[in-house]
Design a protein around this nucleic acid. Sequence first.
DNA 1: AAATGTGACAACCGCAAGCCA
DNA 2: CTGGCTTGCGGTTGTCACATT
Length: 253
Amino acid sequence: MARTPSCDKSGLRKGTWTPEEDRKLKAYVTRYGYWNWRQLPKYAGLQRCGKSCRLRWLNYLRPNVKRGNYSKEEEETIIRLHESLGNKWSAIAGQLPGRTDNEVKNHWNTNLKKLFKDKSLESKDDSELHVKRGRSEEKEETKLVINPSSPPLILESSLSYSPEQPASSDQFSSDTKDNTVESSKDSVTDDDNKALFEAFEIDSGSFWTEPFFWENSNINTSSSLDSAGYESAEFPFLYREMDFYDQLDGFCF
DNA sequence: AAATGTGACAACCGCAAGCCA
DNA sequence: CTGGCTTGCGGTTGTCACATT
């Protein structure tokens, strides 16, 4: 299922992501957002290309990503949209909350292609019932804009999670578990989430006592961010009393 | 039990579009 | 306008897990 890790010429890792890499990427993006995918791995302490990091985040680590177990409704939606849009996987995925283009594409290629063929042989009438929806309903992406002239801290050394140290509280909701349970076999586990969570505590000093910075999701998404740039972007500390990932999903991803 | 075939899906690759100086 | 850089997208590949022979 996963590729064997290897290194390319420039020394960047390729292939399957390790839990450690996942943890670093998750910790970094959760804290700082993705200000520049190309530069990000350097500051996150990852030996990966930015493209790989982006893909891993969007398809796997991003909050609220649904994995596996497509409902009948979802499958019907995919078939219907594919009929009208063709291989516009990102557009199709946009109509399916929590699903990624890559996953939709894989599901189509491995499961639905045959079904669709059979279905189209049975009847072509369904094609008249297309629901053509605009892309305005697709997920809106709000990027965290960070001053590139003063890049964020490198998290590498700050993620020294100790398994012996229990999480202070269980901030990772059942939703979070849902996001990761399917994939936990090879990388992301509850332990990883706890590790990530604790990484914030360790790195930030006091996770729970930091002031709210982006109250009411009034995120600064323009380039008018002051010279403090990322230094002020303490958005993870917003989630004191909220579901951690639900909130993240609300504005930054 | 071993060999082979097939399904599933994570991840890579190349190209195109968008942005900005 | 233009060229460089970054991001997004879709096609494809590689590998594991399970089923079948």
